[in-house]
Amino acid sequence: MVNLGIGSLWLVALTSAFMGAVITIQSAYNLVNPMVPLWAVGIVARDSIIIEFSPTIIMLVLAGKVGSNIASEIGTMRVTEQIDALEIMGINSSGYLVLPKIIAAIIICPVVVIVSMIIGITGGWIAGDLSGVVPSADYLKGLQNQFLPFNVTFAMIKTVVFAFIITSVPAYHGYYTNGGALEVGQSSTKGVVNSSILILIFDYILTQLILA
């Protein structure tokens, strides 16, 4: 799991940097009203990255990578009777295999998401400056304006819930695989699809519960 987190860093960094860049340029493009100062782009970019993009998009990306990995690993252990081998020794196989993964994800994912926030915001800054759409000074001014620390807390709550989803759902599908290599592939797909859908549903529920 630690390997998964670290192994995903490149993917996360790439996704975050481009995400930040696109959000910044798009927000500037949409803010044509002269009543709104250009530094508002900094606020918009910061808040949308922190509240929505980093936790949700990055966790969706991780659902694909981590989820398929977990489902196929546990599914393979099931069809090659490795899970039976654990059970026969009197080991509670679901607890032994799944719990450490959930715990690791709950610890690692918030770190990954915070890194993503930093890279995303930096990406927006660089893109705004390079393209000349949002000058550096305006962007930085926006970043420091009306900052709500609770937004970060909210993002972390979402991340932890999503971390639980992207490990437990694929693990469940892997654990109950029946058959052979073909079914392992199917479990892996189901794990990724269902955890992605659940992330989107819980994103809505949590936003409604906490922010509304």
Binding site: E81, Q82, A85
Partner: peptide, 10 residues
């Protein structure tokens, strides 16, 4: 127990 496919932890 010795399983049909060995079931070694890979």
């Amino acid at each position: 127990m010795l399983f049909q496919g060995g079931a070694l932890f890979d």
